Amino acid sequence: MQSTHSISLTVVEEIAKREGVSPEELRPPLHYAIDTDALDSLFQSTDSEKVPSTVKFAYNGYMVSIDETGDVDVTDHTSVTEADKTVV
């Protein structure tokens, strides 16, 4: 986990990079999709037993996954749902 950034800021930066915009230009703001204060507090815990193993949520067409180390993975939501489909 990055000590200089909050987890929510890291998520915003990753999505902004994918969108090719500055973090300030993301619309809608991340807090419309998830309580950013609660998200940050989950990963600021000093007790490793209180940090969740994974947090996943959808935002603006992306699936965001954050593991217990604070690594943020952003994938296109459509690629996640397409992979789940079975061709008959």
Rank of each mutant, 00 (worst) to 15 (best):
S8Y: 02
M1D: 06
G61W: 13
I15K: 00
M63G: 08
K17F: 03
L26Q: 04
D76T: 05
K56H: 07
Y62D: 04
D67E: 07
A38M: 13
V87S: 11
H31R: 15
H77C: 15
E19Y: 01
E24Y: 11
E68L: 15
K17L: 08
T54C: 14
S41Y: 09
M63V: 12
F43G: 00
P29T: 11
T4V: 09
E82C: 13
E25V: 10
R18C: 03
A16L: 08
A58H: 12
I15Y: 00
S22D: 11
T81W: 05
S3Q: 10
K17P: 01
F57Y: 08
T36A: 03
S65T: 13
H77I: 14
P23W: 06
K17I: 05
D67V: 08
T86Q: 05
S6W: 02
D37P: 06
V74Q: 05
V88Q: 10
R18A: 04
V72Q: 00
H77R: 14
D73T: 15
S6R: 08
H31I: 08
I66G: 01
E24F: 09
S22V: 09
V88W: 04
E13I: 02
T86H: 07
L39K: 02
V12P: 00
V80G: 02
D67L: 06
G61Y: 14
V74F: 03
V12L: 03
S45W: 07
D37F: 13
Y62V: 07
T69E: 10
T54S: 11
S45Q: 09
E25D: 13
S8D: 04
R27F: 10
K56P: 10
K85E: 13
T36V: 09
G70S: 13
R18H: 06
T4C: 07
K50S: 09
Y59T: 12
F43S: 00
E19F: 00
A83F: 01
Y59M: 11
T36Q: 04
I66C: 04
L26I: 13
S8L: 03
T86L: 02
G61Q: 10
A33Y: 14
H77M: 14
T78W: 10
E49P: 01
D35M: 07
